[in-house]
């Protein structure tokens, strides 16, 4: 069996009395979309935060390509190939759309101690950035300020920035939340095409998207994995139905935790 690109072992995270992550062990493999689903407050975002290093787990470990990154800061992990798209849009509102993505491209360079040349005219940043914007259908908005984008467009920008860092692992926290039908379909089909090149962790509430895309589905409830398997197994799992699928089919909610 080839070793997983990302592997967590027994991750635990408490917030006071709240158990947000409870002994979570999972894998992300290249060429696979691993969907993590679960009700509100199940700990999906908290799990991603631990993978990116924005939160440190209380217990357990995280391996990236066999290397222990449990205590590495976010920037180090990002440079090692992890990228995320936030559930709540996290962009640079005062920069143009193109600048946002160009900055993400810049993050792939060995360092940014370059003091003289104008970043906004550097083709090595702009060309790849434009390419990614085109891929997401945002090229027409390149010159707009990020703050002027619609909510759906900002979510696309969020994804564009993640892609621009040329990651190996994509951690996507509800990439289609709050998008219109068309936009959301576009993203779903895009994720389908991205799949072969990345290991993707997909948190998503749209079950149609999940079952269309996922190779593996893990169900979290109160921070604990209650089921994990191929889409067909999950669809038939009684506990999953009771805990999640049965009671909320396609929950169109927009609330979220601290991010």
């Amino acid at each position: 069996m080839p070793d997983a690109l990302v592997r967590t072992r027994g991750l635990c995270k408490h917030f006071g009395g709240v158990v947000a992550t409870d002994n979570v062990t999972l894998e992300l493999n290249r060429g696979e979309i691993h969907a993590v689903i679960g009700p509100n407050g199940a700990g999906k975002t908290t799990l991603i935060n631990q993978l990116t290093g924005e939160l440190f787990p209380d217990a357990g470990s995280i391996l990236l390509d066999g290397r222990d990154i449990t205590r590495e800061p976010p920037a180090v992990r990002a440079r090692a190939g992890l990228a995320r798209a936030y559930q709540i849009v996290s962009i640079f509102p005062a920069f143009s759309v193109l600048q946002n993505v160009a900055l993400a491209v810049q993050a792939t360079q060995p360092h940014s101690f370059r003091f003289w040349r104008e970043a906004a005219r550097d083709a090595r940043l702009l060309d790849p950035a434009m390419e990614i914007l085109a891929r997401l259908g945002l090229e027409g908005r390149a010159g707009a300020l990020a703050s002027q984008l619609s909510h759906g467009e900002q979510r696309q920008l969020e994804l564009a920035m993640a892609l621009a860092t040329r990651p190996r692992v994509l951690l996507l926290d509800e990439p289609t939340a709050g998008m219109g039908h068309e936009e959301s379909r576009h993203i779903v089909s895009l994720l389908g095409t991205l799949k072969s090149d990345y290991a993707i962790l997909l948190v998503e509430h749209d079950m149609n998207a999940v079952f269309a895309l996922a190779d593996l589905i893990t169900v979290l409830v109160y921070g604990r994995i209650v089921a994990s398997g191929a889409p067909d197994e999950i669809r038939g799992d009684a506990e999953v139905k009771r805990a999640y699928l049965g009671e909320k089919k396609k929950a169109p909610r927009r609330t979220g935790a601290a991010d």
Binding site: A75, A83, S90, F92, T165
Partner: peptide, 13 residues
């Protein structure tokens, strides 16, 4: 503007 995002992008700010 957004230090958290910068670090998530890979900048040791």
């Amino acid at each position: 503007a957004n230090d958290r995002r910068m670090q998530a992008l890979g900048f040791p700010t």
